[in-house]
Design a protein around this nucleic acid. Structure first.
Lengths: 197, 197, 197, 197
DNA sequence: AATGAATGAGGGTTCATTCAT
DNA sequence: TATGAATGAACCCTCATTCAT
């Protein structure tokens, strides 16, 4: 019996992505993933070493790409604060191009080694540079709680820009406005803080 | 044999809350919940009609209270914009007082009828009034996408204030600062929008 | 539907013993064990916490009993060498009374925490006292290799006495003869060794 | 692409031996055996007809050699009892030279047609001649149970000599001592038996 | 000779729920 | 009301073997 020349791996990635997005890693059924890809669960293991391996295959390439990109962005940011908007746009454009994988990572990774990635990102990756930028900009040590809250808000802004279904063009316009929003807000915040003390 | 006069229902609610918070609704094991409450799974069904009924019992009272409170708050807000900070504080104080239940609702409700409650709240409850307030304040129709993004950021701000482990006093101070942040940001945003058109 | 008042636990122990003896721990199928006991695999877990728990339940009581008995036997043996035959008989009678459990422990425990128990017994429990008795008896240090070989032979003797299907009476007669065999052999062995050096 | 002139069959035999020795026939994974031999499971079947065929190929040549050798040894033994030690040494030297295959046969053959080979050897091959030699030596019919037990002990002695990691020289010395042990023991045994009756 | 994909049954375990007692 | 045993389907994964290419 001739088998169709379809790329089985690609079909597994496709149905895996669908199921993981729909139910999360743990709840997603490998049986269903296989059924939708048209093979038995036994056959699955000729292509991936297990459920988590499939998840990794969906998420890892994007993750490595993002990390590399972020390294470039942050090194620029630390030397030249004015590159902010361009860098944000670069990051978000990348994320939009890998929207599904981001969602997998942030919202469907419970039970995998990627669980808690969002918190890791915020606390270990973004926060230190954020605090430093805030402190430098303010010329004093800014309350970490405030920094963290604003960072969370910023992160949520990104999420909406990524998941909102916007084109990169639309995102660009919005980022300009939202950056105006954030910077004006931050300046006002500093004024208030200085009034206090 | 005399039984201790403990309130079985209360113990189930307590261990249910613990397990749901720790593992989420779906992954939490009813067996474990019952074991921790000191009874068998069979006995459980004399007190609740099922796993989800227990979850509802944890979340529903708070939810009704919150909805009532929110109705009052929003009706004031619509008639007098200056009541903002007080109303926010009222809402957040309520949420802090029911922190666990909020977390159940927002982060542990996957698999229940409350799944997607956060999105429901944002889109169906908060968004309409937000859009109206923004439009009125701006004196023109503000891009719904922008409103939605800022609403999401605002929501994240609340989340952090609720979950951050702050006292109401600390929250009050932060809200004042963060309101300054938001309002200055919003004014700047309007300026930019008006420049564009 | 009335259930028969059979002791389910006992039936599981019975069919578990059968399957473990027939196929060993790893190859034995829990599904089959349950089927033979007349229940579903799900129900099994109301009685035991898992496959190995069932195995332990078969083997542990006997093991604890044997260890206690051995402690008594060996303390006598170390103070009075002439008690040998009685003590051997005591041990072997115990083992015969728990023949199946011994076989489980020695031949069917691969994959459980009891794996390698026979080697443990020989090397850690029997060998040290054997070496000491031999050395004392010979009045010099006996080659450990020889001691170990003779210990293995002794162990095999016990195995045959246990598994051979003999009554305790028959075993008693045989032990007397086999002890004569061993002791005469050992004396001769010592002569030869002394001749050498 | 030129393939290296390695002998695939030999590599399969090598990795098969390793895996079977390490995990036993049943638990050893054919996949792993093939992987270690550097080919796919599919290719395996061009060299062997199945898992058990590979096992046979490891064990059969040695087995035939041993059987032939044993026939010579036993025919001598039956005509001239004094050849005992030399014959034992011959057998054991053969076994040491094929130590791995012996272990495969005796300890790793569960699930193959060779399962129970040790018992077969003892009961069908060794026992008849042993009984005859004993009877002849004693000048009367010796209790088969005793013969069987002593045969088992003898067999265990051989096992230890084979697996103990000794050189043939060391084994020779030990056999002399152990034969003294056995023969003195056996003579004493006969005395006791004759006393009884 | 070799590949690699497929099979299909089987492995132990967990689950929310039911129900006779 | 409480018990604890039972259900039966689902979970991910492994296996020796087959076979078109």
């Amino acid at each position: 019996m001739a088998r169709l020349p379809v790329n089985i791996r690609a079909m597994l990635l496709k149905s895996g992505k669908e199921q993981f997005l729909a139910y999360g890693f743990e709840k997603a059924s490998l049986r269903t993933i296989c059924k939708e890809a048209g093979l038995t669960t036994g056959a699955f293991y000729n292509h991936f070493s297990g459920k988590e391996d499939l998840f990794s295959a969906l998420v890892d390439p994007m993750l490595r790409g993002f990390q590399e990109m972020y390294r470039n962005v942050i090194s620029q940011e630390m030397t030249d604060l004015s590159t902010g908007i361009d860098n944000e746009l670069t990051s978000i454009a990348y994320a939009i191009a890998h929207k599904d994988e981001f969602r997998l990572l942030f919202e469907c990774s419970g039970g995998t080694k990627y669980e808690g990635f969002k918190e890791h990102l915020i606390h270990e990756v973004f926060y230190p540079s954020y605090q430093e930028i805030f402190d430098r900009y303010a010329g004093r040590h800014v309350d970490p709680s405030l920094v963290m809250i604003i960072l969370h808000m910023k992160f949520e802004e990104y999420m909406e820009l990524i998941y909102g279904g916007y084109t990169v063009e639309e995102v660009k316009k919005m980022i300009i406005l939202l950056t105006a929003f954030s910077e004006a807000g931050f300046q006002k915040l500093l004024e208030e803080i200085n009034k206090e003390s």
